[in-house]
Design a protein around this nucleic acid. Structure first.
Length: 107
DNA sequence: CGCAGTCTAGCAC
DNA sequence: GTGCTAGACTGCG
């Protein structure tokens, strides 16, 4: 039905600059909801996966982590996402964001 | 660690 | 079309 929730997530996610990340909580609250679960669900089940980062619609789900900076079971492999994040300047340590607070983007 | 709260998508009837 | 289940979460006990 309404893609509004989805679009909101993507928009907010796109608002996150490179080398920065955000959390499900931040996205949900920024979207005006408390459904942190729905945020992750939208990323996973919806058409804008990380693989769409080909220059069109870019939804860097890998830039979204749990509230504690921990990389929760992403869809395409935590390892891949960890490397991607590291490439953007985000340090990953044991599947967690080392400098989480430093790279965390606040809306 | 386990339960409750909140929302979307998918499958069943 | 309506109803129930599952899910990449968070907060509290």
């Amino acid at each position: 039905m309404t893609n509004k929730f989805n679009e909101r997530m993507y928009k907010l996610l796109k608002k996150v600059p490179k080398g920065k990340i955000t959390t499900y909580k931040a996205l949900a609250e920024a979207a005006g909801t408390k459904a942190y679960r729905a945020v992750g669900n939208a990323m996973n089940k919806n058409p804008y996966g990380i693989l769409r980062c080909k220059g069109k619609k870019m939804v860097p789900c890998h830039r979204v982590v749990a509230s504690n900076g921990h990389l929760h079971g992403f869809a395409h492999g935590l390892k891949k996402k960890a490397e991607l994040l590291r490439k953007e300047g985000i340090e990953i340590k044991n599947k967690k964001v080392a400098n989480f607070e430093k790279v965390l983007f606040r809306f």
